[in-house]
Design a protein around this nucleic acid. Structure first.
Lengths: 188, 188
DNA sequence: CCTTTAAGAGACCTTGCGTCTCTTACGGCC
DNA sequence: GGCCGTAAGAGACGCAAGGTCTCTTAAAGG
């Protein structure tokens, strides 16, 4: 009687595939993750995967989006520039914690363009945060050099990509207090 | 007559292996580089490679060292802090050009500790350069927060790892003029 | 000259990729 | 409610490469 003749389709199947991919990622890590492994875990064939994503990287990127949703660019508004920037960095660090450095390195090596899609987001948020600080009179101007504006995000990324350990709150505070705030506090 | 009964040994063989590895890297790129490919190019067996390095990453790292020598930490001395720091960054960018971003990403993904060995070097050089600037009276103090000291190097690394294109001179100048110099020019 | 070492060569087994084929459940449409 | 196109589920297949093992024999050292 257990015909088990249930065959998943469409969105249901897709969700199962991504859950399987994520579970497999957590189980074996990105380096050892294989399409066969994911297929087996999802109790289906490789073809079903390849029909949708043409390689590991695409699959995992999709799984990550499915997991964490699109990177919510919720702009923080704590009342101070310092608080806002820290909040932005914390959000980034949290994402890292979910993903893990090994997966990040793997994706960076295999996918041509993880950078922009994954990291480009913070820029707009920072711009807003800085503009609001300028309006409050907290800093002299919101018209910062491009490189200064993205500095906190850039340093966080650097930290994520090069240190093997997870980024600590202390590091975030250093980035903000030792580097970013002194720079924007007084313009050239 | 073509006995070709020449069998390489020791340093001679080792040098040939590394040359072969490097040539193969340039020919097919890191992603497609295989131990078999390198062995074939060196006209030897895989065992000879595995006897020395246990995987691609180790092999290529060795080949890079053999190629470019250990990272010469020649400390520049142009007379100005700006010139010195720029020179340090140029040296780093040059290395990147020799290696290429794909190889870098590959190594970072496969080797556990490329970061320290490859990138840790700049720190000492920067420290020296900054100290000399302070002695010249060019900046108020050489006693910078750790994060500020390594800032130029960190940003360069970030650029190398996340932009697909090669780092331009313009970028280096921005790092120095928009970020580093304003920070050290006047301490907190 | 004799012994030890490891180079050179290639066989071997295994894993995973990516493709292909086949059957048949599912869902849409008339 | 019945027909039909699509694609799920299952597995075979050929291939590339990893990594190990074996064998012969050149080279280096005493």
């Amino acid at each position: 009687m257990p015909g088990e003749t249930t065959r998943r389709r469409g969105a249901v199947l897709e969700a199962d595939l991504m859950d399987a991919a994520w579970a497999e990622l957590e189980a074996v890590g990105y380096a050892k993750l294989t399409m066969e492994g994911v297929a087996a875990r999802a109790k289906t064939g490789k073809q079903v995967l390849y029909r949708r994503w043409s390689n590991r990287a695409e699959l995992i990127i999709a799984a990550m989006r499915h997991r964490t949703g699109s990177i919510a660019d919720r702009v923080p508004d704590t009342g101070t520039l310092r608080g806002d920037v820290l909040e932005v960095l914390r959000a980034g660090a949290t994402r890292q914690r979910q993903i893990g450095p090994d997966t990040l390195h793997g994706l960076l090596a295999e996918a041509r363009d993880v950078g922009p899609s994954f990291f480009g987001i913070m820029r707009g948020v920072l711009r807003t945060v800085v503009e609001r600080a300028a309006e409050r009179g907290e800093i002299p101007t919101a018209d910062l050099p491009r490189r200064v504006l993205t500095l906190p995000a850039d340093l966080l990324r650097h930290e994520i990509l090069l240190r093997r350990e997870l980024v600590t709150e202390e590091t975030l505070v250093e980035i903000v207090d030792d580097v970013f705030l002194p720079l924007v506090a007084r313009p050239s």
